[in-house]
Design a protein around this nucleic acid. Sequence first.
DNA 1: GCTTGACCCTCACCTAACGTCAGGCGGTAT
DNA 2: ATACCGCCTGACGTTAGGTGAGGGTCAAGC
Lengths: 259, 259
Amino acid sequence: MSELIARSLTVGNVAGISGVSVRTLHHYEKIGLLVPAGRSDAGYRLYSDADCDRLSRILYYRELGFPLDGIATLLDDPQQDRYEHLERQRTLLRERLARIQAMVASLEREMEAHMTGYNLTPEERLDVFGDFDPAQYEDEARERWGESDAFKQSQARARSYTKEGWKAIQAEMDRFNGLFVKAMNAGTPATSQAVMALAEEHSQHISRWFYECSYEIHRGLGTMYVDDPRFTANIDKDAPGLAAYLREAIVANADRAES
Amino acid sequence: MSELIARSLTVGNVAGISGVSVRTLHHYEKIGLLVPAGRSDAGYRLYSDADCDRLSRILYYRELGFPLDGIATLLDDPQQDRYEHLERQRTLLRERLARIQAMVASLEREMEAHMTGYNLTPEERLDVFGDFDPAQYEDEARERWGESDAFKQSQARARSYTKEGWKAIQAEMDRFNGLFVKAMNAGTPATSQAVMALAEEHSQHISRWFYECSYEIHRGLGTMYVDDPRFTANIDKDAPGLAAYLREAIVANADRAES
DNA sequence: GCTTGACCCTCACCTAACGTCAGGCGGTAT
DNA sequence: ATACCGCCTGACGTTAGGTGAGGGTCAAGC
Protein backbone atom coordinates (compact mmCIF):
# COMPACT_ATOMS: atom_id res chain seq x y z
CA MET A 1 0.00 0.00 0.00
CA SER A 2 1.33 3.37 -0.91
CA GLU A 3 0.91 6.10 1.61
CA LEU A 4 -2.52 7.62 1.67
CA ILE A 5 -2.40 11.39 1.78
CA ALA A 6 -6.01 12.08 2.58
CA ARG A 7 -6.45 15.71 1.77
CA SER A 8 -8.61 17.43 4.29
CA LEU A 9 -10.40 20.70 3.84
CA THR A 10 -11.44 23.36 6.32
CA VAL A 11 -14.99 24.66 6.56
CA GLY A 12 -14.09 27.65 4.47
CA ASN A 13 -12.68 25.49 1.71
CA VAL A 14 -15.69 23.25 1.62
CA ALA A 15 -18.03 26.20 1.78
CA GLY A 16 -16.14 27.82 -1.04
CA ILE A 17 -16.29 24.95 -3.47
CA SER A 18 -19.73 23.73 -2.52
CA GLY A 19 -21.39 27.11 -2.44
CA VAL A 20 -23.00 26.67 0.97
CA SER A 21 -22.25 28.95 3.90
CA VAL A 22 -19.94 28.10 6.77
CA ARG A 23 -22.90 28.46 9.05
CA THR A 24 -24.72 25.80 7.10
CA LEU A 25 -21.86 23.38 7.63
CA HIS A 26 -21.88 24.18 11.34
CA HIS A 27 -25.58 23.53 11.32
CA TYR A 28 -25.21 20.22 9.55
CA GLU A 29 -22.71 19.12 12.11
CA LYS A 30 -24.92 20.14 15.00
CA ILE A 31 -27.83 18.11 13.71
CA GLY A 32 -25.54 15.21 12.92
CA LEU A 33 -26.12 15.34 9.21
CA LEU A 34 -22.52 15.91 8.22
CA VAL A 35 -19.92 15.48 10.94
CA PRO A 36 -16.44 16.23 9.61
CA ALA A 37 -13.96 13.36 9.71
CA GLY A 38 -11.76 15.10 12.24
CA ARG A 39 -10.46 18.23 13.87
CA SER A 40 -7.09 19.90 13.76
CA ASP A 41 -5.08 20.63 16.90
CA ALA A 42 -6.64 24.04 17.02
CA GLY A 43 -10.10 22.57 16.80
CA TYR A 44 -10.64 23.37 13.14
CA ARG A 45 -13.10 21.11 11.36
CA LEU A 46 -11.40 18.91 8.79
CA TYR A 47 -13.47 17.46 6.00
CA SER A 48 -12.35 14.34 4.17
CA ASP A 49 -13.13 13.34 0.61
CA ALA A 50 -15.87 11.09 1.92
CA ASP A 51 -17.39 14.06 3.70
CA CYS A 52 -17.45 15.97 0.45
CA ASP A 53 -19.07 13.01 -1.19
CA ARG A 54 -21.72 12.99 1.46
CA LEU A 55 -22.21 16.71 1.21
CA SER A 56 -22.74 16.44 -2.49
CA ARG A 57 -25.53 13.94 -1.90
CA ILE A 58 -27.00 16.15 0.78
CA LEU A 59 -27.08 19.09 -1.57
CA TYR A 60 -28.80 17.04 -4.21
CA TYR A 61 -31.56 15.98 -1.91
CA ARG A 62 -31.83 19.40 -0.38
CA GLU A 63 -32.20 21.03 -3.77
CA LEU A 64 -34.93 18.57 -4.49
CA GLY A 65 -36.79 19.73 -1.43
CA PHE A 66 -36.12 17.05 1.15
CA PRO A 67 -36.04 18.04 4.82
CA LEU A 68 -32.62 17.64 6.37
CA ASP A 69 -33.58 14.86 8.74
CA GLY A 70 -35.15 13.01 5.86
CA ILE A 71 -31.88 13.31 4.02
CA ALA A 72 -30.09 11.94 7.06
CA THR A 73 -32.24 8.83 7.17
CA LEU A 74 -31.83 8.37 3.43
CA LEU A 75 -28.08 8.65 3.59
CA ASP A 76 -27.67 6.57 6.71
CA ASP A 77 -29.90 3.74 5.61
CA PRO A 78 -27.50 0.82 5.31
CA GLN A 79 -29.88 -0.82 2.84
CA GLN A 80 -29.06 1.77 0.26
CA ASP A 81 -26.03 1.58 -1.94
CA ARG A 82 -24.66 4.21 -4.24
CA TYR A 83 -26.64 3.01 -7.16
CA GLU A 84 -29.86 3.36 -5.24
CA HIS A 85 -29.10 7.00 -4.67
CA LEU A 86 -28.13 7.79 -8.19
CA GLU A 87 -31.25 6.07 -9.37
CA ARG A 88 -33.51 7.97 -7.03
CA GLN A 89 -31.83 11.23 -7.74
CA ARG A 90 -32.35 10.72 -11.44
CA THR A 91 -36.01 10.04 -10.89
CA LEU A 92 -36.39 13.10 -8.73
CA LEU A 93 -34.61 15.23 -11.25
CA ARG A 94 -36.92 14.00 -13.92
CA GLU A 95 -39.89 15.00 -11.83
CA ARG A 96 -38.35 18.35 -11.23
CA LEU A 97 -37.82 18.84 -14.89
CA ALA A 98 -41.44 17.96 -15.51
CA ARG A 99 -42.47 20.53 -12.96
CA ILE A 100 -40.49 23.25 -14.62
CA GLN A 101 -41.89 22.24 -17.96
CA ALA A 102 -45.36 22.49 -16.50
CA MET A 103 -44.54 25.99 -15.37
CA VAL A 104 -43.26 26.85 -18.80
CA ALA A 105 -46.43 25.46 -20.32
CA SER A 106 -48.54 27.41 -17.89
CA LEU A 107 -46.58 30.53 -18.64
CA GLU A 108 -47.07 30.09 -22.33
CA ARG A 109 -50.74 29.50 -21.88
CA GLU A 110 -50.90 32.76 -20.07
CA MET A 111 -48.85 34.60 -22.66
CA GLU A 112 -51.15 33.26 -25.30
CA ALA A 113 -54.23 34.19 -23.33
CA HIS A 114 -52.84 37.64 -22.75
CA MET A 115 -52.17 37.92 -26.44
CA THR A 116 -55.50 36.81 -27.77
CA GLY A 117 -57.13 38.65 -24.93
CA TYR A 118 -59.22 35.99 -23.33
CA ASN A 119 -59.47 35.61 -19.62
CA LEU A 120 -58.37 32.51 -17.84
CA THR A 121 -60.54 31.11 -15.08
CA PRO A 122 -58.98 31.05 -11.63
CA GLU A 123 -58.66 27.30 -11.95
CA GLU A 124 -56.66 27.61 -15.11
CA ARG A 125 -54.54 30.36 -13.70
CA LEU A 126 -53.75 28.49 -10.57
CA ASP A 127 -52.99 25.23 -12.22
CA VAL A 128 -49.36 26.14 -12.27
CA PHE A 129 -47.81 22.85 -11.38
CA GLY A 130 -50.20 20.84 -9.25
CA ASP A 131 -51.05 17.28 -10.13
CA PHE A 132 -48.90 17.20 -13.18
CA ASP A 133 -48.61 14.07 -15.28
CA PRO A 134 -45.82 14.46 -17.82
CA ALA A 135 -47.18 11.75 -20.10
CA GLN A 136 -50.59 13.29 -20.20
CA TYR A 137 -49.06 16.65 -20.73
CA GLU A 138 -47.08 15.50 -23.71
CA ASP A 139 -50.12 13.90 -25.18
CA GLU A 140 -52.12 17.02 -24.67
CA ALA A 141 -49.48 19.18 -26.22
CA ARG A 142 -49.11 16.84 -29.13
CA GLU A 143 -52.82 16.65 -29.58
CA ARG A 144 -53.11 20.34 -29.44
CA TRP A 145 -50.29 21.23 -31.71
CA GLY A 146 -50.47 18.33 -34.09
CA GLU A 147 -46.88 17.31 -33.61
CA SER A 148 -44.28 17.96 -31.04
CA ASP A 149 -41.79 19.67 -33.31
CA ALA A 150 -44.06 22.59 -33.86
CA PHE A 151 -44.64 22.75 -30.16
CA LYS A 152 -40.95 22.86 -29.42
CA GLN A 153 -40.53 25.59 -31.94
CA SER A 154 -43.20 27.54 -30.20
CA GLN A 155 -41.29 27.28 -26.99
CA ALA A 156 -38.04 28.17 -28.66
CA ARG A 157 -39.50 31.27 -30.21
CA ALA A 158 -41.47 32.28 -27.18
CA ARG A 159 -38.22 32.34 -25.34
CA SER A 160 -36.78 34.96 -27.63
CA TYR A 161 -39.54 37.50 -27.78
CA THR A 162 -38.56 41.02 -27.08
CA LYS A 163 -40.93 43.49 -25.59
CA GLU A 164 -41.27 45.26 -28.91
CA GLY A 165 -41.94 41.99 -30.67
CA TRP A 166 -44.60 41.22 -28.16
CA LYS A 167 -46.38 44.51 -28.69
CA ALA A 168 -46.01 44.20 -32.43
CA ILE A 169 -47.57 40.77 -32.37
CA GLN A 170 -50.51 42.04 -30.42
CA ALA A 171 -51.00 44.95 -32.79
CA GLU A 172 -50.76 42.64 -35.72
CA MET A 173 -53.32 40.30 -34.21
CA ASP A 174 -55.66 43.23 -33.73
CA ARG A 175 -55.14 44.29 -37.30
CA PHE A 176 -56.06 40.80 -38.48
CA ASN A 177 -59.16 40.84 -36.43
CA GLY A 178 -60.15 44.17 -37.88
CA LEU A 179 -59.65 42.99 -41.43
CA PHE A 180 -61.63 39.81 -40.87
CA VAL A 181 -64.44 41.72 -39.22
CA LYS A 182 -64.54 44.19 -42.09
CA ALA A 183 -64.69 41.41 -44.65
CA MET A 184 -67.37 39.59 -42.73
CA ASN A 185 -69.50 42.69 -42.26
CA ALA A 186 -69.12 43.54 -45.92
CA GLY A 187 -70.66 40.17 -46.66
CA THR A 188 -67.54 38.83 -48.36
CA PRO A 189 -67.77 35.04 -48.28
CA ALA A 190 -65.19 33.32 -46.11
CA THR A 191 -64.20 31.22 -49.08
CA SER A 192 -63.42 34.16 -51.34
CA GLN A 193 -59.91 34.68 -52.62
CA ALA A 194 -59.42 37.82 -50.58
CA VAL A 195 -60.43 36.27 -47.30
CA MET A 196 -58.48 33.11 -47.94
CA ALA A 197 -55.47 35.28 -48.61
CA LEU A 198 -56.05 36.87 -45.24
CA ALA A 199 -56.16 33.43 -43.67
CA GLU A 200 -52.92 32.58 -45.38
CA GLU A 201 -51.37 35.73 -43.99
CA HIS A 202 -52.68 34.79 -40.58
CA SER A 203 -50.99 31.42 -40.76
CA GLN A 204 -47.75 33.03 -41.87
CA HIS A 205 -47.92 35.51 -39.08
CA ILE A 206 -48.15 32.64 -36.64
CA SER A 207 -45.25 30.93 -38.34
CA ARG A 208 -43.21 34.05 -38.01
CA TRP A 209 -43.89 34.58 -34.37
CA PHE A 210 -44.88 31.35 -32.75
CA TYR A 211 -44.17 28.13 -34.52
CA GLU A 212 -44.10 26.66 -37.98
CA CYS A 213 -47.81 26.70 -38.58
CA SER A 214 -48.62 23.90 -41.00
CA TYR A 215 -52.02 23.81 -42.64
CA GLU A 216 -52.91 20.93 -40.41
CA ILE A 217 -52.14 22.99 -37.36
CA HIS A 218 -53.85 26.03 -38.74
CA ARG A 219 -56.97 23.99 -39.34
CA GLY A 220 -56.70 22.80 -35.77
CA LEU A 221 -56.58 26.37 -34.56
CA GLY A 222 -59.61 27.31 -36.60
CA THR A 223 -61.51 24.40 -35.14
CA MET A 224 -60.49 25.42 -31.67
CA TYR A 225 -61.77 28.94 -32.20
CA VAL A 226 -65.21 27.46 -32.66
CA ASP A 227 -65.09 24.48 -30.34
CA ASP A 228 -63.48 26.07 -27.32
CA PRO A 229 -66.13 28.33 -25.86
CA ARG A 230 -63.56 30.53 -24.20
CA PHE A 231 -61.95 31.31 -27.51
CA THR A 232 -65.29 31.65 -29.21
CA ALA A 233 -66.61 34.03 -26.62
CA ASN A 234 -63.57 36.22 -26.91
CA ILE A 235 -63.46 36.25 -30.67
CA ASP A 236 -67.17 36.79 -31.05
CA LYS A 237 -67.12 39.51 -28.44
CA ASP A 238 -66.90 42.37 -30.92
CA ALA A 239 -68.27 40.63 -33.95
CA PRO A 240 -70.67 37.75 -33.39
CA GLY A 241 -70.03 34.91 -35.79
CA LEU A 242 -66.42 35.89 -36.37
CA ALA A 243 -65.06 32.66 -34.92
CA ALA A 244 -67.04 30.54 -37.35
CA TYR A 245 -66.17 32.89 -40.20
CA LEU A 246 -62.50 32.62 -39.30
CA ARG A 247 -62.65 28.89 -39.16
CA GLU A 248 -64.30 28.67 -42.53
CA ALA A 249 -61.68 30.89 -44.11
CA ILE A 250 -58.82 28.99 -42.54
CA VAL A 251 -60.13 25.61 -43.61
CA ALA A 252 -60.87 26.81 -47.12
CA ASN A 253 -57.39 28.26 -47.43
CA ALA A 254 -55.77 25.09 -46.11
CA ASP A 255 -57.78 22.93 -48.47
CA ARG A 256 -56.92 25.12 -51.43
CA ALA A 257 -53.24 25.20 -50.57
CA GLU A 258 -52.93 21.49 -50.11
CA SER A 259 -54.89 20.43 -53.16
CA MET B 1 -72.10 46.71 -20.05
CA SER B 2 -73.47 43.37 -19.06
CA GLU B 3 -73.68 42.62 -15.39
CA LEU B 4 -70.44 41.50 -13.86
CA ILE B 5 -70.86 38.46 -11.70
CA ALA B 6 -67.47 38.42 -10.04
CA ARG B 7 -67.17 34.95 -8.66
CA SER B 8 -65.52 34.92 -5.29
CA LEU B 9 -63.88 31.99 -3.63
CA THR B 10 -63.33 31.13 0.01
CA VAL B 11 -59.94 30.29 1.43
CA GLY B 12 -60.69 26.61 1.16
CA ASN B 13 -61.58 26.90 -2.49
CA VAL B 14 -58.48 28.83 -3.34
CA ALA B 15 -56.32 26.51 -1.28
CA GLY B 16 -57.88 23.56 -3.05
CA ILE B 17 -57.23 24.69 -6.57
CA SER B 18 -53.91 26.36 -5.95
CA GLY B 19 -52.45 23.60 -3.83
CA VAL B 20 -51.31 25.88 -1.01
CA SER B 21 -52.59 25.51 2.54
CA VAL B 22 -55.23 27.66 4.15
CA ARG B 23 -52.64 28.70 6.66
CA THR B 24 -50.44 29.95 3.88
CA LEU B 25 -53.24 32.17 2.62
CA HIS B 26 -53.77 33.48 6.14
CA HIS B 27 -50.08 34.17 6.32
CA TYR B 28 -50.04 35.99 3.02
CA GLU B 29 -52.83 38.19 4.21
CA LYS B 30 -51.10 38.95 7.47
CA ILE B 31 -47.93 40.09 5.74
CA GLY B 32 -49.96 42.01 3.20
CA LEU B 33 -48.86 39.95 0.26
CA LEU B 34 -52.29 38.80 -0.78
CA VAL B 35 -55.22 40.52 0.85
CA PRO B 36 -58.52 39.07 -0.36
CA ALA B 37 -60.82 41.45 -2.18
CA GLY B 38 -63.46 41.28 0.52
CA ARG B 39 -65.12 39.49 3.37
CA SER B 40 -68.52 37.89 3.67
CA ASP B 41 -71.01 38.92 6.35
CA ALA B 42 -69.63 36.19 8.55
CA GLY B 43 -66.11 37.43 8.08
CA TYR B 44 -65.10 34.77 5.56
CA ARG B 45 -62.30 35.79 3.22
CA LEU B 46 -63.51 36.18 -0.34
CA TYR B 47 -60.99 35.97 -3.14
CA SER B 48 -61.67 37.56 -6.50
CA ASP B 49 -60.34 36.53 -9.87
CA ALA B 50 -57.73 39.24 -9.61
CA ASP B 51 -56.62 37.75 -6.30
CA CYS B 52 -56.18 34.39 -7.98
CA ASP B 53 -54.19 36.07 -10.68
CA ARG B 54 -51.96 37.62 -8.10
CA LEU B 55 -51.62 34.35 -6.24
CA SER B 56 -50.54 32.62 -9.40
CA ARG B 57 -47.76 35.15 -9.82
CA ILE B 58 -46.81 34.80 -6.20
CA LEU B 59 -46.52 31.05 -6.57
CA TYR B 60 -44.32 31.44 -9.60
CA TYR B 61 -41.89 33.66 -7.84
CA ARG B 62 -42.01 31.60 -4.70
CA GLU B 63 -41.22 28.45 -6.60
CA LEU B 64 -38.30 30.27 -8.10
CA GLY B 65 -36.96 30.99 -4.66
CA PHE B 66 -37.88 34.61 -4.05
CA PRO B 67 -38.54 35.73 -0.48
CA LEU B 68 -42.13 36.76 0.09
CA ASP B 69 -41.39 40.41 0.74
CA GLY B 70 -39.35 40.51 -2.42
CA ILE B 71 -42.31 39.12 -4.28
CA ALA B 72 -44.47 41.84 -2.75
CA THR B 73 -42.22 44.60 -4.01
CA LEU B 74 -42.06 42.97 -7.42
CA LEU B 75 -45.81 42.66 -7.70
CA ASP B 76 -46.58 46.07 -6.28
CA ASP B 77 -44.09 47.94 -8.39
CA PRO B 78 -46.30 50.13 -10.57
CA GLN B 79 -43.50 50.30 -13.13
CA GLN B 80 -44.03 46.67 -14.01
CA ASP B 81 -46.70 45.53 -16.38
CA ARG B 82 -47.83 42.02 -17.11
CA TYR B 83 -45.35 41.58 -19.87
CA GLU B 84 -42.50 42.46 -17.58
CA HIS B 85 -43.49 39.63 -15.31
CA LEU B 86 -43.94 37.07 -18.01
CA GLU B 87 -40.59 38.05 -19.38
CA ARG B 88 -38.83 37.76 -16.07
CA GLN B 89 -40.52 34.54 -15.21
CA ARG B 90 -39.42 33.06 -18.48
CA THR B 91 -35.85 34.08 -17.83
CA LEU B 92 -35.95 32.65 -14.36
CA LEU B 93 -37.41 29.42 -15.61
CA ARG B 94 -34.66 29.17 -18.13
CA GLU B 95 -32.09 29.56 -15.41
CA ARG B 96 -33.85 26.96 -13.39
CA LEU B 97 -33.85 24.60 -16.28
CA ALA B 98 -30.14 25.14 -16.70
CA ARG B 99 -29.63 24.38 -13.05
CA ILE B 100 -31.47 21.11 -13.31
CA GLN B 101 -29.56 20.24 -16.40
CA ALA B 102 -26.36 20.94 -14.54
CA MET B 103 -27.49 18.58 -11.84
CA VAL B 104 -28.29 15.94 -14.40
CA ALA B 105 -24.88 16.41 -15.96
CA SER B 106 -23.23 16.19 -12.59
CA LEU B 107 -25.19 13.08 -11.79
CA GLU B 108 -24.17 11.46 -15.00
CA ARG B 109 -20.57 12.34 -14.44
CA GLU B 110 -20.81 10.63 -11.14
CA MET B 111 -22.52 7.56 -12.56
CA GLU B 112 -19.80 7.34 -15.11
CA ALA B 113 -17.09 7.79 -12.55
CA HIS B 114 -18.68 5.16 -10.39
CA MET B 115 -18.80 2.88 -13.37
CA THR B 116 -15.27 3.23 -14.53
CA GLY B 117 -14.17 3.31 -10.94
CA TYR B 118 -12.22 6.50 -10.80
CA ASN B 119 -12.55 8.85 -7.92
CA LEU B 120 -13.74 12.36 -8.36
CA THR B 121 -11.97 15.12 -6.51
CA PRO B 122 -14.03 16.97 -3.94
CA GLU B 123 -14.15 19.93 -6.28
CA GLU B 124 -15.67 17.84 -9.01
CA ARG B 125 -18.12 16.21 -6.69
CA LEU B 126 -19.25 19.43 -5.21
CA ASP B 127 -19.62 21.22 -8.47
CA VAL B 128 -23.26 20.29 -8.51
CA PHE B 129 -24.77 23.45 -9.85
CA GLY B 130 -22.64 26.41 -8.87
CA ASP B 131 -21.52 28.84 -11.53
CA PHE B 132 -22.98 26.92 -14.38
CA ASP B 133 -22.58 28.18 -17.90
CA PRO B 134 -24.66 26.10 -20.29
CA ALA B 135 -22.66 27.20 -23.30
CA GLN B 136 -19.37 26.27 -21.77
CA TYR B 137 -20.84 23.03 -20.64
CA GLU B 138 -21.99 22.14 -24.09
CA ASP B 139 -18.62 22.99 -25.50
CA GLU B 140 -16.92 20.85 -22.97
CA ALA B 141 -19.22 17.97 -23.64
CA ARG B 142 -18.80 18.35 -27.35
CA GLU B 143 -15.09 18.53 -27.03
CA ARG B 144 -15.06 15.51 -24.88
CA TRP B 145 -17.41 13.37 -26.85
CA GLY B 146 -16.59 14.52 -30.32
CA GLU B 147 -20.11 15.47 -31.24
CA SER B 148 -23.20 16.28 -29.36
CA ASP B 149 -25.40 13.55 -30.78
CA ALA B 150 -23.37 10.85 -29.15
CA PHE B 151 -23.51 12.76 -25.93
CA LYS B 152 -27.23 13.07 -26.03
CA GLN B 153 -27.52 9.38 -26.66
CA SER B 154 -25.43 8.78 -23.63
CA GLN B 155 -27.81 10.79 -21.57
CA ALA B 156 -30.81 9.10 -23.06
CA ARG B 157 -29.45 5.68 -22.30
CA ALA B 158 -28.19 6.57 -18.88
CA ARG B 159 -31.71 7.53 -18.04
CA SER B 160 -32.99 4.06 -18.75
CA TYR B 161 -30.52 1.90 -16.91
CA THR B 162 -31.96 -0.66 -14.63
CA LYS B 163 -30.13 -1.86 -11.59
CA GLU B 164 -29.36 -5.14 -13.25
CA GLY B 165 -28.10 -3.38 -16.34
CA TRP B 166 -25.90 -1.25 -14.18
CA LYS B 167 -24.35 -4.21 -12.42
CA ALA B 168 -23.97 -6.07 -15.69
CA ILE B 169 -22.13 -3.13 -17.20
CA GLN B 170 -19.76 -2.97 -14.30
CA ALA B 171 -19.11 -6.69 -14.45
CA GLU B 172 -18.53 -6.45 -18.15
CA MET B 173 -16.11 -3.59 -17.67
CA ASP B 174 -14.23 -5.65 -15.15
CA ARG B 175 -14.13 -8.58 -17.54
CA PHE B 176 -12.65 -6.34 -20.21
CA ASN B 177 -10.04 -5.11 -17.87
CA GLY B 178 -9.13 -8.64 -16.94
CA LEU B 179 -8.80 -9.70 -20.54
CA PHE B 180 -6.66 -6.71 -21.44
CA VAL B 181 -4.44 -7.26 -18.44
CA LYS B 182 -4.03 -10.91 -19.30
CA ALA B 183 -3.09 -10.10 -22.87
CA MET B 184 -0.66 -7.43 -21.78
CA ASN B 185 1.00 -9.61 -19.20
CA ALA B 186 1.29 -12.42 -21.72
CA GLY B 187 3.26 -10.04 -23.88
CA THR B 188 0.71 -10.01 -26.67
CA PRO B 189 1.28 -6.85 -28.68
CA ALA B 190 -1.51 -4.27 -28.47
CA THR B 191 -1.64 -4.24 -32.25
CA SER B 192 -2.26 -7.98 -32.56
CA GLN B 193 -5.48 -9.23 -34.08
CA ALA B 194 -6.68 -10.66 -30.77
CA VAL B 195 -6.19 -7.50 -28.81
CA MET B 196 -7.64 -5.32 -31.53
CA ALA B 197 -10.68 -7.58 -31.51
CA LEU B 198 -10.93 -6.95 -27.80
CA ALA B 199 -10.78 -3.21 -28.44
CA GLU B 200 -13.52 -3.59 -31.01
CA GLU B 201 -15.63 -5.44 -28.48
CA HIS B 202 -14.92 -2.68 -25.98
CA SER B 203 -16.21 -0.08 -28.39
CA GLN B 204 -19.30 -2.12 -29.10
CA HIS B 205 -19.94 -2.56 -25.43
CA ILE B 206 -19.90 1.18 -25.04
CA SER B 207 -22.23 1.52 -28.00
CA ARG B 208 -24.61 -0.90 -26.43
CA TRP B 209 -24.70 0.74 -23.06
CA PHE B 210 -23.71 4.35 -23.37
CA TYR B 211 -23.74 5.98 -26.74
CA GLU B 212 -22.99 5.22 -30.34
CA CYS B 213 -19.25 4.95 -30.00
CA SER B 214 -17.70 5.91 -33.34
CA TYR B 215 -14.04 5.17 -33.94
CA GLU B 216 -13.32 8.83 -33.59
CA ILE B 217 -14.88 8.83 -30.16
CA HIS B 218 -13.25 5.60 -29.19
CA ARG B 219 -9.88 7.04 -30.11
CA GLY B 220 -10.75 10.03 -28.00
CA LEU B 221 -11.45 7.79 -25.06
CA GLY B 222 -8.17 5.94 -25.49
CA THR B 223 -6.33 9.23 -25.53
CA MET B 224 -8.11 10.35 -22.43
CA TYR B 225 -7.12 7.18 -20.60
CA VAL B 226 -3.51 8.25 -21.03
CA ASP B 227 -3.84 12.03 -20.88
CA ASP B 228 -6.15 12.40 -17.95
CA PRO B 229 -4.12 11.44 -14.91
CA ARG B 230 -7.19 10.49 -12.94
CA PHE B 231 -8.16 7.93 -15.51
CA THR B 232 -4.60 6.78 -15.91
CA ALA B 233 -4.10 6.32 -12.22
CA ASN B 234 -7.22 4.27 -11.91
CA ILE B 235 -6.57 2.08 -14.90
CA ASP B 236 -2.93 1.54 -14.07
CA LYS B 237 -3.76 0.79 -10.47
CA ASP B 238 -3.77 -2.98 -10.90
CA ALA B 239 -1.65 -3.24 -13.98
CA PRO B 240 0.87 -0.47 -14.62
CA GLY B 241 1.02 0.46 -18.26
CA LEU B 242 -2.49 -0.77 -18.98
CA ALA B 243 -3.77 2.65 -19.93
CA ALA B 244 -1.12 3.07 -22.61
CA TYR B 245 -1.67 -0.50 -23.76
CA LEU B 246 -5.40 0.12 -24.02
CA ARG B 247 -4.89 3.25 -25.97
CA GLU B 248 -2.58 1.58 -28.41
CA ALA B 249 -5.07 -1.24 -29.00
CA ILE B 250 -7.95 1.14 -29.45
CA VAL B 251 -6.12 3.33 -31.91
CA ALA B 252 -4.82 0.36 -33.88
CA ASN B 253 -8.30 -1.09 -34.07
CA ALA B 254 -9.82 2.20 -35.15
CA ASP B 255 -7.15 2.70 -37.82
CA ARG B 256 -7.65 -0.79 -39.15
CA ALA B 257 -11.41 -0.50 -39.22
CA GLU B 258 -11.42 2.82 -41.00
CA SER B 259 -8.83 1.99 -43.64
C1' DG C 1 9.51 38.74 17.70
C1' DC C 2 5.43 41.32 16.70
C1' DT C 3 1.60 42.88 14.25
C1' DT C 4 -2.02 42.39 10.93
C1' DG C 5 -5.66 40.34 8.47
C1' DA C 6 -7.95 36.40 7.02
C1' DC C 7 -9.93 32.39 8.97
C1' DC C 8 -11.52 29.48 12.67
C1' DC C 9 -14.13 28.45 17.20
C1' DT C 10 -18.44 28.48 20.27
C1' DC C 11 -22.44 30.38 22.17
C1' DA C 12 -26.60 32.86 21.49
C1' DC C 13 -30.25 35.24 19.65
C1' DC C 14 -33.01 36.43 15.30
C1' DT C 15 -35.86 35.41 11.04
C1' DA C 16 -38.87 33.46 7.31
C1' DA C 17 -42.46 30.74 6.14
C1' DC C 18 -45.19 28.38 7.47
C1' DG C 19 -47.37 23.84 10.66
C1' DT C 20 -50.22 22.84 14.29
C1' DC C 21 -53.29 23.10 17.89
C1' DA C 22 -57.01 25.58 20.74
C1' DG C 23 -61.33 27.65 21.37
C1' DG C 24 -65.25 29.44 19.11
C1' DC C 25 -68.70 31.15 15.35
C1' DG C 26 -71.51 30.24 10.79
C1' DG C 27 -74.09 27.54 7.56
C1' DT C 28 -76.62 23.82 6.07
C1' DA C 29 -78.31 19.09 5.48
C1' DT C 30 -80.90 15.70 7.71
C1' DA D 1 -82.18 20.48 16.58
C1' DT D 2 -78.13 18.45 16.08
C1' DA D 3 -74.22 17.41 13.82
C1' DC D 4 -70.61 18.37 11.03
C1' DC D 5 -67.82 20.85 8.12
C1' DG D 6 -65.57 25.04 6.99
C1' DC D 7 -64.28 29.37 8.66
C1' DC D 8 -62.34 32.65 12.23
C1' DT D 9 -58.48 34.46 15.39
C1' DG D 10 -54.69 33.90 18.40
C1' DA D 11 -50.53 31.68 19.78
C1' DC D 12 -46.82 28.66 20.11
C1' DG D 13 -43.57 25.30 17.49
C1' DT D 14 -40.36 24.13 13.75
C1' DT D 15 -37.00 24.13 10.00
C1' DA D 16 -33.00 25.94 8.01
C1' DG D 17 -30.32 28.65 8.54
C1' DG D 18 -28.50 34.44 9.17
C1' DT D 19 -26.10 37.47 12.06
C1' DG D 20 -23.32 39.09 15.44
C1' DA D 21 -20.32 38.82 20.00
C1' DG D 22 -16.21 37.53 22.00
C1' DG D 23 -12.16 35.21 21.39
C1' DG D 24 -8.31 31.85 19.53
C1' DT D 25 -5.10 30.61 15.06
C1' DC D 26 -2.03 30.96 11.23
C1' DA D 27 0.85 32.87 7.56
C1' DA D 28 2.94 37.06 5.77
C1' DG D 29 5.52 41.00 6.26
C1' DC D 30 8.17 44.41 9.01
